[in-house]
Amino acid sequence: MKIAQLLTARRDASHRHWTDIAAYAYLLLGVVLMFGPVLWLVLSSFKTQAGLLEFPPSLLPMSQKEISVAGYPQPLPLFTVTMEDGTTRQLAQVRRVGIQSQMVDPDNPSQQYRVAIDKRVPVREFSLATENYTEPLARFAFPRFLANSVFVTVVATLITLLINSMAAYALSIYEFKGKNAAMLMVIGTLMIPITIILVPVYLVVTKLGLVNSLWAVILPGAATPTGVFLLRQYMLTLPRDLIEAARMDKASEWQIYWRIVMPLTLPALAVLAIFSIMWRWNEFLWPLAVLTKTEVYTLQIGLNAFQGELQTQWQYLLAMTVMTLTPVAIVFVFLQRFITTGIANTGMK
């Protein structure tokens, strides 16, 4: 759809109201403010170190054009030069001497010129500094962090899905003594964010010998009250007849859970899985407290460490930031509607 059409489209043209126009203005401002910074990050991440140091910065990643000239083994940088007679032409620079630059005509390499450096302007072209992406993968522990994050996210999500769905199953399908007490315990934990039990959880993890192990990140958050609630709410809507039919069909309680209830709870499990992936991928404070060795850093912790160490090497930092946000962005593009309705329905994040 054309932008103009999008802007002027209305449900009925007879009731044009100033609030409609204000609404579109607000939304467009929103697009710039919300997407702009991310776009700027992505564009910047493709600039060379020299490009990043430019002020004012260019919008697109640009770098100086280089050209191979016969007789010179290395490609030479290309400049637009204002000649003494006022004409301009493109010359390649062989070397610079003080405020003079020795230049050569690429079309006629035998012809050399001496040009004052303030008479020449670099010829620039759009180019992506992909080495910003490839070098951190080779030079830093970035792949290690990535692997750690993937491990934590996948394993923690699987554990979360399993134990929370088991608890939700018990709390939705059965009547048993102590059910209310168990529900209360689950609600109680809703009120205890990790921020206020940081120190004692650290002690527990130490006692279990898990400090500087990825399990220290995975285990403490595996049982989430929000997960239990979400799944229980969904399981309560399953027809009771199905469970009884399975019982009549000689299914054990575990089989009822695993072969009947779990497949039917897939939509809710998917929502919880997406949330769990987001939580785990983005988790910061707790891993920061419990992971102190570089080998076990997750992406977020690694990125935070980099931003301390690489203050002068923004090109790597930016590229790694982009790599960190890319999986989330991909998940978002494909599951946006799913996630937003999930949040709207459950009010959790």
């Binding site: 027809p239 009549m248 000689k250």
Partner: peptide, 16 residues
């Protein structure tokens, strides 16, 4: 129920 060896047809059919 699972060990009584009976079969039941439910009002809602309760098909999986």
């Amino acid at each position: 129920a699972s060990d009584r060896g009976l079969a039941m047809v439910f009002q809602s059919y309760a098909l999986y």
